[in-house]
Design a protein around this nucleic acid. Structure first.
Lengths: 228, 228
DNA sequence: CTTGTATAACTACCATACTAGTATAACTAA
DNA sequence: TTAGTTATACTAGTATGGTAGTTATACAAG
């Protein structure tokens, strides 16, 4: 368990959530590489908590298919499953197409301002090469769309289904992806939402979410041990 | 805890899953009414298992928002949240629209036969007034579509998001819903898939899933204590 | 060197004990 | 009677101990 590090800033929330988020971060960030063995005992010792909250965190993570728990045998960080990535992308595409249409209709000045601010930040981050921050802002952009339409739970569900995809994105991040396209697409979507052009917005969103299809196979070749 | 009954036929699976499915069934079937107080201790005693697996089942159910867990205070069966029902319906509509299109393209003889068999069974059940069986067959019909497209995990996720909606369906079941429409719509969808008419299939599916919008408000008036 | 077997170590699962926090009931004072 | 306070019972969260089952290792036989 070389990978597990203790996050000292544990301010609020239950121990269970602390363990859950700690592990999830490590897995998504690929600090805990796919295929790594991991056990309740190890984690509880490293994080200095009892096994019960660890168990419960494991349970949650296995539901997201980030951990594979094999009774009486062991637990491993799951390999990235491209079919799962595709399912996640499929859901995102079809849901967000509909959400962005709704956003065109219901977004008021305040919400549009939130979007605009986000896009501005993204442009700033490109100049400064803050890729990890861009990663967050990307999520934030889409979250605003869902939350503005009163569909935050839908967003949370999508996030869960996209855990495997997030790891892929992390690989791309390392591989120095070209963020200019992504940000310009965000800007485009924002403009269409502001102009309330439903069809254009939908189309822009669709092509934005099709982008992720690229490079899958290439990444698989480059990091074969990470994939199924 | 009058509602909890013990299912004797506990054949396989872990204790945790046994508790989870037992409780989930009771909640969906409204044997455990929305708003009911419930505690780990009570369940563990009634089901004659320890508190640990009960806790883990609670955790899972609270993620589905079927239980509300309040630390150091108590746990209650959540009230039916119509906004959550709408979110679930929204997801279903937009995903299944796309899935049924894909089904038109990829379904082979074997899968089409499965669908046909299912629809036949439904017609049989109408004659015999087996409403609960119809309830299951309805789910089965949609599941076949997802599984045939290699998107079983998407279906599972949708099932989770539709827990609240399922309770609404159960209320309608009691209120003696007219199943003829539903079954004929299923038949229509099947026909379009068999004929590979993508657009017609999508349209049929859309109107099928819009059906659930009816009666919401009426049911809320009739069972006010069950709703938020 | 390979294969079959016994054994030891390790795993997650489940049961139970303990703790800290909450809500309600009982009680006191006005 | 009512408002405020204390005490008690009850809750979920956490810790720990025991169990059944799996895996890997060591060793013996071919």
């Amino acid at each position: 368990m070389k990978g597990i590090t203790i996050i000292n800033t544990r301010i609020n929330g239950s121990t269970r959530d602390f363990v859950y988020y700690t592990l999830r971060n490590q897995i998504i960030n690929l600090k805990l590489e796919p295929g790594t063995k991991i056990s309740e005992k190890e984690v509880s010792e490293k994080l200095k908590v009892s096994r019960t909250p660890v168990r419960e965190a494991f349970l949650k993570l296995s539901q997201e298919e980030l951990l594979g728990v094999y009774p009486q045998s062991g637990t491993i960080v799951t390999l990235i499953d491209l079919s799962l990535v595709e399912e996640g992308r499929f859901i995102r595409e079809n849901i967000e197409k509909a959400v962005v249409r709704e956003a065109c209709q219901v977004f008021d000045k305040n919400l549009l301002f939130q979007l605009e601010t986000n896009v501005r930040f993204q442009e700033l981050c490109i100049e400064k090469d803050s890729h990890h921050k861009l990663f967050e802002l990307d999520d934030e952009f889409h979250r605003i769309l869902f939350e503005g339409c009163g569909k935050i739970r839908t967003w949370n569900m999508i996030r869960q289904m996209n855990s495997h995809f997030d790891r892929l994105r992390m690989l791309r991040l390392v591989a120095n992806q070209d963020w200019n396209i992504v940000v310009s697409q965000h800007k485009e979507i924002y403009n269409y939402v502001a102009k309330k052009s439903l069809d254009h917005a939908e189309q822009a969103m669709t092509s934005h979410l099709k982008l992720v299809n690229l490079e899958k196979e290439e990444l698989k070749k480059r990091y074969p041990g990470f994939f199924e």
